[in-house]
Simulated assay, not measured.
Amino acid sequence: MSVSDPVADMLTKIRNAGLARHEKVDIPTSKLKLEIVKILKTEGYIKNFKKITQDGVNTIRIFLKYDEKQNPVIHGLERISKPGRRVYTGYKDMPRVYNGYGTLIVSTSLGVTTGKKAAEKKVGGEILCTVW
């Protein structure tokens, strides 16, 4: 099955697995998806992840994180830039997610990074998604 927007498919799988209280979720791997998952790990939205190979297919296994009441740590994932409508921003106009409580993931010329780090490096780029 071909997917027209693999990043949106990954975000939907993570969102649905969190709402269903799953321990882990497997997604097909790509370099962009791996960079997004690394940011989710460093920002504390997921427990851990690892790359696995099953029957010659590379996948990323993401271990979801929950609070003490078993509510998912990820309250929302939203894809901003879509294949039909790309959204770009400069470092001066970098939007904030929930007044700084959320995270903006941006694809810059220096790689995939958070909105805060991109603004510190004074580099803009394509807004991939927001996480809160």
Rank of each mutant, 00 (worst) to 15 (best):
M1T: 06
S2R: 05
S2N: 03
S2H: 12
S4G: 00
D5F: 09
A8F: 05
M10G: 04
M10P: 10
L11Q: 05
T12W: 05
T12F: 05
N16H: 13
L19S: 08
R21V: 05
R21S: 14
E23H: 10
V25C: 02
T29L: 10
K31T: 07
K31W: 03
L32W: 01
L34T: 07
E35A: 14
I36F: 06
I36S: 07
V37R: 12
V37M: 08
K38A: 13
Y45C: 09
N48G: 02
F49P: 05
K50S: 14
I52H: 08
D55A: 07
D55L: 10
G56L: 04
G56E: 03
G56H: 12
N58H: 11
R61H: 03
I62C: 10
F63M: 12
D67A: 03
K69G: 02
Q70T: 03
Q70E: 13
P72G: 04
P72M: 10
H75S: 13
H75Q: 15
G76I: 00
L77G: 11
L77R: 11
L77Q: 13
R79D: 03
R79G: 13
Y88C: 02
Y91T: 01
P95H: 01
R96S: 10
G100P: 09
T103M: 07
I105F: 12
V106S: 01
T108I: 12
S109Y: 00
G111H: 06
T113D: 14
K116I: 10
K116E: 11
A118Q: 06
A118R: 01
E120T: 07
E120K: 15
K122C: 09
K122E: 13
I127Q: 06
L128A: 09
C129R: 08
